[in-house]
């Protein structure tokens, strides 16, 4: 039962938590402010920046002009959305099989899938790099999509598995009794019922793929570089152009920040493989 709490302690809690929350989010707010300043204003003392300078959208235009933000943005979208949906098409049948027709080895297979996630990327960097170089997949969106699909597939399968397990098997049996083929069963009954679960799986995996920074940095150059690599190119010496760097950063993180807020609850479940609910 919820207990009544005095307004005073509530105010106190709000103040403490609010301050700490503000400190956590401050770097993001700060670059949002800097991105709306001129370069000259952006490097002035913090108080001057806040209270003694004008606002401008110039930096955003400059970033697009300098390094074609939209090209990288589309690369990021294609790679993260593509890898997620490709993964989904392979993962849904697999998760169906493991959730509804569990066998003696289902648990082992799941464990093994999880174990591939623990393979440190650096351990297979060299051969993947060489294979990609020799097959022309290096610096291609297709290559990166495939890699991200593979590294996130265990998470997709696990998430779907935990969601599917909550759907009563009787409903799928009912569909079978009603004359549904396996395809109809998955397409018309299972998938629509699992829409919330599938949606959060999609969200989380887009976020993970969007922010993935090992393979995207190592397997791309100019052509297929997504936003992670686009931002890395600002590391120096242009990094000292604060306003432009801020604008570029905001543009790189904004889409995912918004998606992320929608899916915080699912994030827990997905990232802990259902171990914490």
């Amino acid at each position: 039962m919820a207990r009544s709490v005095s307004t005073r302690s509530k105010v106190l809690n709000t103040a403490v938590a609010g301050t700490l929350g503000f400190l956590m989010v401050f770097p993001i707010l700060w670059i949002l402010i800097l991105s709306l300043k001129t370069e000259e204003d952006a490097i002035r003392a913090p108080l001057e920046v806040l209270f003694n300078s004008g606002w401008t959208f110039d930096s955003y235009g400059a970033v697009q002009a300098r390094s074609d933000y939209f090209k990288h943005f589309f690369n990021s979208v294609i790679i993260s959305v593509g890898s997620t949906f490709l993964g989904l098409m392979i993962a849904i049948p697999a998760a169906w099989a493991m959730a509804f027709v569990p066998g003696k080895r289902t648990k082992d297979v799941l464990m093994w899938m999880l174990s591939t996630k623990m393979l440190p990327p650096v351990g297979v960097l060299v051969p993947i790099y060489l294979i990609f170089r020799d097959t022309g997949l290096l610096d291609s969106r297709l290559g990166l999509t495939l890699v991200l699909m593979l590294i996130n597939m265990p998470i997709i399968i696990w998430m779907l598995y935990t969601y599917f397990r909550e759907i009563p098997g009787e409903i799928l049996e009912a569909a079978r009794m009603d004359g549904a083929s396996l395809r109809s069963e998955i397409l018309y009954v299972l998938t629509p019922m699992a829409v919330p679960g599938i949606a959060s799986t999609v969200l989380l995996n887009i976020i993970l793929a969007w922010n993935e920074a090992f393979w995207t940095l190592n397997l791309t150059a100019a052509k297929a570089a997504p936003l992670t690599a686009f931002i890395a190119s600002y590391s120096s010496p242009e990094g000292l152009f604060y306003a432009k760097l801020s604008a570029a950063s905001i543009m790189a993180i904004a889409p995912i920040l918004i998606l992320g807020w929608f899916s915080q609850k699912q994030l827990v479940r997905g990232l802990t493989f259902g171990a914490v609910k």
């Binding site: 009787e170 409903i171 009912a174 009954v189």
Partner: peptide, 8 residues
Amino acid sequence: FQSYALYP
């Protein structure tokens, strides 16, 4: 079925 197994 016992749980009715309707498609929700």
